[in-house]
Write a protein that binds this DNA or RNA. Structure first.
Lengths: 209, 209
DNA sequence: GTTTTTCTGTAGCGACCGCTAGAGAACTCA
DNA sequence: TGAGTTCTCTAGCGGTCGCTACAGAAAAAC
């Protein structure tokens, strides 16, 4: 994947003045993603970040603002790079049921992929946070995902694909709970097959079509 | 519930010498439970603790050891006072299915009870921890709960109460994931009825008996 | 070249962290 | 009463936190 840039001197036709940045911004951001993903917002100190990103503190602050702004950018980057499988499933699968089945199966693999932190950054990285806005930002993201799923289920109900008496909100929340639980299990050491088994069990709640 | 004591001067027949403790140890511990429950291990500072417990730092260290020892005691107290509903259900209900049904329904109420922190301390209080032993201690607790549930399900399979081809480990893990997901949902603002609906949906995975 | 602009490295700011030394207070025991 | 014991209070330890002032380095503009 080619990194998208807005202020990259050596690539984007050296138009910026002054001393050029000595590190690759996207690479540094990716390291920050891994650090925050692994240890969460609070437990990842700025000195941890400068170490894994390979830059000094002033460079970090010049390039990303402060710790909170960097985290926001990390969350966005995580969303496009690692968390997009849910949106993709919702967009590509013909029914809510098929989308959820795919999401759960893919989550089992995503949350236990080797060579990267287990579980979901959005679920874990901002729990027990002394900065309420940070905790709230991921909470809103999680709740927004629930609403998205609920709307998808409602659409299937309206289309006659699912029973009219189905509780879309409850079904969406159940699915969210299973996903978050799978993420926790992944953090607690569960492997891909174990999570896949959980996913299969969870899918049996859907009405037979 | 009567507080069990080992060194309580004013109740246990004033046998201890020296200046007596000026605060009630059990009351102070309860305040620590609420603080750790709400904010987690790292985000609850010793100065937070001394404030809500109403004592000075030296008194805290004299009575409870250090922060980590206090947290261990808090987890134990939480277990007996707030987390015992699961063990009770497993002990009192005749089948694994009935026990899980009761656990899920009670969790919906417990995790959203007013006037106390939402969700489960064991699930949330030691995530994103810079002290690995603390994080590990609750992880072990969660995994031990999974094993307990798995054994209960296996017993029902052996007794012919559940199908012989049932995957006890997967079913236990699924149940654990739903419980942890419900706890997360409670933290994210879900109410009792919403969690109860999730619990009802989750119970539909059990084979009809 | 010189000037202007921007980034980098050192070094350290004030605030808070978990924790404790030391002195005095409050009790039991003789 | 006095001695011995244990708790409480004030104050502050060394360390880390997020963050930045400042001087020098590296580029474009002139």
């Amino acid at each position: 994947m080619v990194r998208s840039e807005e202020t990259k001197p050596q690539v984007k036709a050296a138009k910026t003045r002054g001393r050029p940045r000595s590190f690759d911004r996207a690479t540094a951001l990716e390291q920050a993603v891994l650090a925050f993903w692994e240890h969460g917002y609070e437990a990842t100190s700025v000195s941890d970040l400068t170490r894994v990103m390979g830059i000094g503190a002033p460079s970090l602050y010049a390039a990303f603002g402060d710790k909170q702004a960097l985290f926001a950018e990390v969350v966005a980057e995580y969303g496009t790079r690692y968390g997009s499988f849910t949106d993709r499933a919702l967009a590509e699968e013909p029914t809510a049921r098929a989308a959820v089945a795919r999401i759960l199966r893919e989550a089992a693999a995503e949350y236990t992929a080797p060579d990267r932190p287990h579980g979901c950054l959005v679920v874990h990285a901002a729990t027990n946070c002394t900065t309420p806005e940070v905790e709230e930002s991921l909470r809103e993201r999680r709740n927004a995902n629930l609403v998205t799923l609920e709307r998808r289920i409602e659409a299937d109900i309206a289309a006659g694909e699912l029973p009219a008496d189905l509780d879309a909100a409850a079904l969406a929340r159940h699915t969210g709970a299973v996903i978050q639980g799978m993420s926790q299990q992944a953090r607690d050491g569960a492997g891909r097959e174990e999570l896949a088994a959980v996913a299969e069990i969870a899918m049996t709640i859907w009405p037979r079509t």
